[in-house]
């Protein structure tokens, strides 16, 4: 399941919802991305996430489906926020549940790696010198690429 929202989320409550009433889950992994208070050594007072309504949901659905077809997941959840946020606030939550831990760990990492390079979000950080759009990182592209080779071999 995916959700794109402006408001904050409660990590504990979201995990509880994923596992509620289920006894077939043996492993739950969660990842939370939060707003850092510095960028390139300068303090950040606020961060704004812009996104492409419509495409964001479409991309996240696609990535979520991909993870579910690749690992035996009992459940998966991706929540991503947009709009202005302060340092320390939640940005993104990924929860994966499986019978065993390996699938849950791998699927959570896969979801985050694909989200980072495919979901249409853009971060703008407000610092002492005004607003600055965050540059994409090559290391994120590399992180996504490493899932592509074994995927092709397995298909």
């Amino acid at each position: 399941m995916i959700r794109v929202q402006n408001e904050d989320f409660d990590i504990g409550a979201e995990i509880e919802k994923v596992r509620a009433g289920r006894t077939d889950i043996g492993a739950i992994v969660s990842f939370t991305g939060t707003v850092r208070d510095t960028a390139k050594g300068a303090p950040i007072s606020e961060m704004t996430l812009e996104h492409y309504p419509g495409m964001t949901e479409k991309e996240l659905e696609r990535i979520d489906k991909k993870a579910n077809s690749r690992w035996p997941l009992q459940a998966s959840l991706v929540i991503h926020r947009y709009g202005p946020m302060k340092p320390g606030e939640n940005i993104v939550l990924v929860v994966t549940a499986s019978a065993h831990r390996q699938a849950a760990f791998e699927a959570a990492e896969f979801l985050m790696d694909y989200l980072k390079t495919n979901a249409p979000f853009w971060k703008k950080e407000e610092g002492p010198r005004g607003g600055d759009w965050v540059d994409a990182r090559e290391s994120d592209d590399e992180a996504t690429k490493r899932w592509q080779k074994p995927a092709k071999a397995a298909e």
Binding site: K58, N118, A119, F121, W122
Partner: peptide
């Protein structure tokens, strides 16, 4: 770029596209 909300390379033909979006490399997460 994206055509009708799907990522495309810049070499992609426009054909019957209804919506074209332009943006920098994404930085969510």
């Amino acid at each position: 770029a994206a055509i009708d909300r799907t990522h495309v390379p810049l070499t992609a033909p426009l054909k019957d596209a209804r919506e074209i979006a332009f943006f920098p490399p994404v930085t969510g997460g």
